[in-house]
Structures are given as structure tokens and as C-alpha cells.
């Protein structure tokens, strides 16, 4: 039986972790490579890097980070943030990323999904979608709207429709990030996650809102997610990857316990 995955997301700006991390050993504060290695050794199933570097001339720094991580972390590595073309995707793949996340650029130009799928294979194209809860309308029948540019710009696109469209265009997996839940640490958006997961046949990764181990349990059961993304709850040392997996295992969720 397939295990549910625990995935850690690291936001990287100019080659450093965007949120400062309180390490016990202060020597390596903010080094994404060390953090990746630490999570890998603690049982992480998959790693996502999100490049939030503002200027494109600093992109090379991110490629170096990916390369250094790929040399010492032997689990799937996914990278996103600012991917606008097949060339961007290919550069990251050569640096060592397995999967490429597309987000805003795919909303503005959906062919990007099919172009990437053609170039690097469907299974390696992850459509990451930022979703905001809105009033139900003729245009947004699900009451969930796609937003871009870090949640600032509503696009008038229904999230459920976009999830199916992304699958049709060749995405191999979806990341569903709830803007409402993001940063609250009060739990994932279960209704959104479960409605999207049941609307597609590709795996769905829940993102946004994780603060406690039971939040992962909820989204992997009631939320019908195939994987749960965690960020600040592990970055600040409140929880460990191995502890989260122990908890899920104890409550009967199938997760990888041998590493």
C-alpha cells in the first residue's frame, strides 16, 4: 500500500532560507542545504524548494543550492518559484530537481503546463495553485478562486475547474495552497483539499495552515490529500519530521517509518 507523504517546503531567497531558522548550533543559520540534509536524515519523504528571489540575475544562486542539495539528499526534490519557460524547468532539472512546480506563469499562459510535460514528462510537472475562499458566483461556482503573485491578484478562475484543467494539460501532481489557511497554523483547508482531490486522478499535496500534528492527520484522512506540506512548524523546531511521522503512524495513517 502506498504511503502518505510528508513534504517539507523551504522558501529560499538569494540562496538563503527566507524565514530565519533558530538552530541550536548557530553557525549555519539560514543554510537551506544543511536544513535539507537534516530533514532527509530525519525521515522526510520529499523536499520542495520555493525560490522567492526577486531579481532574475540572482537565479544562478538557486541553481547552486539545488545542485548542492541533490549531491547529498537522495529523495525526490521539487523546485518552484518563477518558472516561466521550458528553459527554466530544464535548468533546474539539470541542477538536480526531479519535479518542477509551475504556478502564476501557468495561470497566465496555461500552455506552459503542456510544454513542460512534453519536455520533462507529466510526472515531473507539479501545478501549484494558490486559492482564496470567495462568495459562490456564476464565475466561481465552487467558491474558491485562483489568485497569483503570492495571493495578491485574483484571476476570476474557479479553483476546481483549474485543477481539472491542469490535469488535462498534463500536470502530474497538484499542490493546493490555501491563502486563507496559510500562516495561521490552525489547520489545512480540508473542504478545499478534499473537493479538489476527489475531482482529479492525480496526487494532491495539501499546503497552508499546518501547525499541529493532528492537522496533518486531518488533511490526509478527511481532506483526502495524498501528501501534506509542512513549513514553519518544522523550521522553527516546534516539531520534527520523525515526530510527525510517528504521530501519523500511531493513528493508523500509512507513512514510511523505515529510513
Amino acid at each position: 500500500m502506498l504511503s502518505k507523504r510528508v513534504i517539507a517546503c523551504l522558501d529560499v531567497r538569494d540562496g538563503k532560507l527566507a524565514k530565519s531558522v533558530k538552530f541550536v548550533d548557530t553557525k549555519d543559520i539560514g543554510d537551506p542545504v544543511q536544513k535539507a540534509r537534516e530533514y532527509y536524515e530525519d525521515g522526510l519523504d520529499e523536499l520542495v524548494f520555493y525560490d522567492i528571489t526577486a531579481s532574475s540575475d540572482k537565479r544562478r544562486i538557486m541553481l547552486d543550492v539545488v545542485e548542492r542539495v541533490a549531491e547529498q539528499v537522495f529523495i525526490p526534490l521539487s523546485v518552484g518559484g518563477g518558472v516561466r519557460s521550458v528553459a527554466d524547468a530544464t535548468d533546474l532539472r539539470l541542477a538536480g530537481a526531479e519535479k518542477i512546480n509551475v504556478n502564476s506563469a501557468a495561470v497566465q499562459r496555461p500552455e506552459l503546463i503542456s510544454e513542460c510535460a512534453e519536455a520533462i514528462g507529466n510526472q515531473n510537472v507539479v501545478l501549484s495553485m494558490d486559492v482564496l475562499r470567495v462568495a459562490v458566483s456564476a464565475q466561481i461556482p465552487s467558491g474558491y478562486e485562483i489568485v497569483i503573485n503570492g495571493g495578491r491578484k485574483p484571476m476570476g478562475i474557479d479553483a476546481l475547474w483549474w485543477a481539472r484543467e491542469g490535469e488535462r494539460l498534463g500536470a502530474g501532481e497538484l499542490v493546493v495552497n490555501s491563502i486563507d489557511a496559510d500562516g495561521t497554523r490552525e489547520g489545512y483547508e480540508l473542504n478545499l483539499t478534499s473537493r479538489i482531490s476527489k475531482a482529479v486522478r492525480i496526487p494532491v499535496i495539501a499546503s497552508g495552515g499546518a501547525g499541529l500534528p493532528e492537522h496533518l492527520y486531518d488533511v490526509l484522512t478527511d481532506g483526502a490529500a495524498d501528501a501534506a506540506l509542512v513549513a514553519s512548524m518544522v523550521h522553527y523546531g516546534d516539531h520534527r519530521i520523525s515526530g510527525l511521522k510517528q504521530y501519523l503512524h500511531g493513528r493508523g495513517v500509512k507513512v514510511r517509518m523505515s529510513w
Binding site: 504511503s3 486522478r201 495524498d226
Partner: peptide, 13 residues
């Protein structure tokens, strides 16, 4: 089972 996704993606025993 419609809840099982294809591709089979992830960790399995």
C-alpha cells in the same frame, strides 16, 4: 478504487 491515483507516485513497501 477511485481514490487511488495514477501514476502510482510515492513510497511503497
Amino acid at each position: 478504487d477511485p481514490s487511488l491515483k495514477v501514476p502510482h507516485m510515492g513510497w511503497n513497501e
